[in-house]
Design a protein around this nucleic acid. Sequence first.
DNA 1: ATGCAAGCTCAAGTCCACTTGAGGTCAAGC
DNA 2: GCTTGACCTCAAGTGGACTTGAGCTTGCAT
Lengths: 147, 147
Amino acid sequence: MPAELLLSVGEVARRSGVAVSALHFYEAQGLLSAERSRGNQRRYRRDVLRRVAFIRAAQMLGISLAEIAEVLQQLPQQRTPTKADWTRLSSRWRESLDQRIADLVTLRDQLQGCIGCGCLSLKACRLYNPADVLAGQGPGPQRLGQR
Amino acid sequence: MPAELLLSVGEVARRSGVAVSALHFYEAQGLLSAERSRGNQRRYRRDVLRRVAFIRAAQMLGISLAEIAEVLQQLPQQRTPTKADWTRLSSRWRESLDQRIADLVTLRDQLQGCIGCGCLSLKACRLYNPADVLAGQGPGPQRLGQR
DNA sequence: ATGCAAGCTCAAGTCCACTTGAGGTCAAGC
DNA sequence: GCTTGACCTCAAGTGGACTTGAGCTTGCAT
């Protein structure tokens, strides 16, 4: 394949807005791969840009890199993925996105009726523990709605 | 004030579902405070439960502890906060919640038209960079919608 | 041919929100 | 009085997602 059509790591960084160090990191995590030039420099196929975009979009949905890597395994390794390949993957996240929206709407409605009314009292509070779905699960800003 | 009405750290942990270590941590971060018993044990006023609930609810909105601490500064230090005090604070988050929902809906609509259509090509992609709002800002699963 | 930006690897550092561990104290029941 | 569980402090560890730094090589322009 014609080497001029391959992208250096710097080019990918510029065009994707992702730092070179992050691209290295993604590779180490198995999210990306690249051929190498004679001199051992990374040479990316152009579809890496779509991959990176996909990764970032998924992160915005709160999906961890490990999960993203797992899903990306399903893409063809050899050929450049087709539109259908990408569509299949992203439709999975359409559902989780719907779920997250629903969760937040619930949260909002209960913010009116719960914090809003001053009743916020833990056990009884459905904002804190709506339908037993958002509770527990340990600390930290966690993803709303499990998969 | 009658000491029997104060709560030990273990009681607060049990009733709030938050680990003792997390309560210690919140105190170190200035989110909570407690009186001490003769023997130097924490004794919480009962409204700590509402404070903890508020903290957890805020975290679910993706708000960092530092920001939460800042907002909690606005509560009266001496007297137990009233319903109106809490309502005032939570109304601020009602807005950011609305914003987050709007962001996610935008994201969802563009998932249809963008990843869905196979056009995902970074610069031009509004999912990756919708209205220049979600872009940049460094790495990591970041909060949708700035304040 | 030489200068210098861009690339390479590997180790260590950062930030957040906690948790875990070590070593010691307190309080209530038997 | 003694045991046991709850509590204390302080330091260090964890995990995710990267970034930074050191020390070295590559590759394009002059």
